[in-house]
Design a protein around this nucleic acid. Structure first.
Lengths: 341, 341
DNA sequence: TTGTAGGCGTTATCAT
DNA sequence: ATGATAACGCCTACAA
């Protein structure tokens, strides 16, 4: 009686039989050709081609207790910011044998914990997670995991393992200082999707204005809605209506800034004369807009690349000396805040 | 001598031992609670909680020859269009036990074939692939795979299995007809990233103009560069310089349209009076722009949802009656083409 | 350099 | 309803 549940799959043994060697030799010929005589390697490769053998990752993972999966957890697949980071990650991973497994937490702590569980159960080679504000449970999971971990998007104290990002607070403070330097006096803030990073940008905005003795909380508008261009228009109009003396606005991201610009255009508000507008992230369109929009450039693609590079190096045993990389930022001054100069 | 290479993992057997039943009973209690007495189910769940048992997907895949992975292959993670589709996919998948594995082919046939190989070697529960222009090799792989397959983004003849999309050619034709109906006479086309879908849009544009007896290939500009807002500005200016009589332009996507709008603003070209602009995809910002931009609305998020729903139903044995779904499109007329009415 | 033995954690199959 | 047994395909450990 045959209890076999054959799957029809071509296995290592099939290759081995046809090549006249043992399965383990085939395994080695494929993974560490140096350990096998070149004759055998050649023959094995030949047979692999003929039979169309493809290794079974599940069997491999089970036997070796390792995978080539790099788990990446981000809060949004729609947000341009993360798609740029993803581009960097893919660019770096493509020349390697690692696979990216993307998890979308959709800004939910609960979802993030579930994703971590799922990833960890797969014995990933490495993990990459966005932000530094993990829940307690998530933090415990990350600390107990045996693979390297990189936190991206932000820098901060007390990394789980490695970290690549920049200070959102400093960036927003610097942007606000730019507005002050341009001679704007009543500088507002518009923020949507209030996640921890947005909150820290708001703090940076406050830092700068308090330092200048001009903080006025009536100039701040935030919402938990996801940010859109349309929302940027609405929020600007609302703020301007409530505070007609508003003469500049720092937007939490570029979508909002673009919306603010369009609203001004529609209302006949002169930018930058009557109102200065500063975005955040420096999406490509900021430079193309008319007037072009001042924004804070952040190295999103590079962040993905660097983080992936560090992760892979750590996976392969050579931990980078620097485990916390601050990629910085740059305020790109453009027409939308050119009241002076 | 003990050859065990213990991994430290909590296994089914650990749970079984502590619960005083056999491993297979635990397995059943977790997957088919109906097959096990409710007492035992309760006890098992209890112990699972205490021990923190998490199933090993690799072992599960190996033993059952199945996974809960839905492989999704798209050509870009940066493109808004695909991120919207991804949102629909995640929205649909989140209530299920399936996992999405995303593959990024980056517009490369070779890469697409490699991804397919990789996915197929994982025994996916289902596959989703973007477009209908797979290479011969990819097509063969898709046809030989034993799981359900959905092609998305386009409709066309001869689906591999299922299909959810719309006709890019018809959409572009209809948009062009709209421009004609608005009284525009020399209607140009601007297209970047010339992939097969773009090519079919160009055909639709040609269909409409030829039907009106006004096709003029000198009004067409295309490039293989990836499309950006800046590129839209550049291409419009170039086309307008070469053909000052140009009075409308159909843009292959909304980034280009936005760039064209900004270029006009900068050059003092009146939109829609002097130049009509029509985009494609109807990104959220089109409605917020000033002037608002006419575009072709396509149901991207719904496309992801529908495709995922069909796929899951097929995986679970109930093939939908309709295996090719045309989601259609709609030209949303806005200020940027309002020469009449 | 190559091979033998056995286990990785789970589920299918058959039996009770 | 529950259990015993073997198998999924590959790799680690050890031996030759």
């Amino acid at each position: 009686m045959n209890k076999r549940r054959k799957s029809g799959r071509v296995t290592l043994s099939d290759v081995a039989r046809k090549a006249g060697v043992s399965p383990i030799t085939v395994s080695r010929a494929l993974r560490n050709p140096d350990m096998v005589s070149s004759d055998v390697v050649k023959r094995v490769q030949q047979v692999v081609g003929e039979l169309g053998y493809v290794p079974d990752p599940a069997a491999r993972a089970l036997a070796s207790q390792r995978t080539d999966v790099i788990g990446v957890i981000i809060p949004s697949v729609t947000n341009n910011v993360f798609s740029d980071v993803m581009r960097g990650i893919y660019a770096c991973v493509e020349e390697t044998n690692y696979r990216v497994q993307l998890g979308n937490s959709r800004y939910s702590e609960r979802e993030e914990e579930k994703l971590l569980q799922t990833f960890i159960s797969q014995r990933p080679a490495g993990l990459m997670i966005s932000g530094i504000d993990q829940s307690h449970a998530a933090r415990l999971l990350l600390e107990s995991v045996s693979c390297p971990v990189v936190q991206i998007m932000e820098t901060g104290p007390d990394p789980v393992d490695m970290m690549v990002g920049f200070s959102h607070r400093d960036a927003a403070r610097t942007a606000t200082e730019h507005l002050i330097a341009q001679g704007y006096e009543r500088i507002g803030f518009i923020g949507a999707r209030m996640d921890p990073r947005t909150a820290r940008r708001l703090e940076g905005y406050g830092d700068a204005l308090r330092a200048a003795g001009r903080y006025d909380k009536g100039l701040v508008r935030t919402t938990r809605q996801r940010s859109t261009v349309t929302l940027g228009s609405e929020m600007l109009l609302e703020l301007k209506a409530a505070r007609p003396d508003l003469d500049a606005v720092l937007c939490n991201n570029d979508d909002l800034a673009l919306g603010a610009l369009f609203a001004c255009r529609r209302q006949g508000i002169d930018v930058p004369g009557e109102l200065g507008i500063c975005g955040f992230n420096d999406l490509e369109m900021m430079a193309a807009a008319c007037p072009s929009i001042t924004s804070v450039r952040t190295c999103r693609e590079e962040m993905g690349e660097r983080a992936t590079g560090m992760l892979i190096r750590a996976i392969e045993g050579e931990r980078p000396a620097e485990t916390a990389v601050d990629l910085g930022f740059e305020v790109i001054a453009r027409e939308s805040t050119a009241r002076r100069g």
